[in-house]
Write a protein that binds this DNA or RNA. Structure first.
Lengths: 105, 105
DNA sequence: TACACATATAACTATATATTTATATGAATA
DNA sequence: TATTCATATAAATATATAGTTATATGTGTA
């Protein structure tokens, strides 16, 4: 595996976190496992949109799921994610203004 | 600042890292300050593309720059970035296969 | 001053991604 | 079994972002 592929994988991992809707979902899951409905309520995203993002997070291993009757429980499966989100919050304490003003993305 | 804005800022921060070209640039800068030309050489990106990404990273406070004659030196200004990239590498040790197979983004 | 060099920007194109609306699937229950 | 509930998926649209080519800007130097 060359260095370029390694960087593509790293980029892909960060993309999992680089979306406000997915972060809202992950934040909801930081307090513990939740069903899709509970996540929909917590995040105020539409059900299909929530579902799509969850599938996305599932595929790249950030969350895992478990069927329980007709409900599906999701939970964070990558412990490091909590740490990394915390680190980002630390960065925002210092740099929120620059990031706020950044117009590129 | 409501929680939604906070999450948008977090997402914006992660977007800085969620691109293979920007990660290549940051990796080049992890070993120390470099001019744009040096970064172009190290990353094999085109000069205008490199410049655009650098402006992007500059705007959101991840790097800073300093003019030196007709050259411009860039360096990482957010120490936490190195730590966060390291954390991502740790995650990849466990989850590279899932992330590799993830087709959503 | 004219030219060469380093970097930035603009216009354009291509592509990736998020979101919505509508619908399918599968499980519980009346 | 028909219906309702929970979730997933598909199709369509909208938007955001990356990358290229061409050019502008500013600085050093012949």
């Amino acid at each position: 595996m060359n260095i370029n592929t390694q960087q593509q994988l790293e980029a892909k991992f960060f993309k999992g976190l680089a979306d406000k809707s997915r972060l809202a979902i992950l934040e909801a899951l930081l307090t513990g496992p939740k069903t899709v409905s509970e996540i929909v309520t917590a995040t105020e995203l539409s059900q299909p949109n929530t579902s799509a993002h969850l599938t996305c997070l599932l595929e790249c291993g950030i969350v895992r799921r478990e069927k329980q009757g007709r409900e599906v429980m999701y939970q964070i499966s990558m412990e490091e994610v909590a740490t990394i989100i915390q680190a980002a919050r630390g960065v925002l304490k210092q740099h929120s203004e620059e990031i706020y003003n950044c117009t590129r993305y």
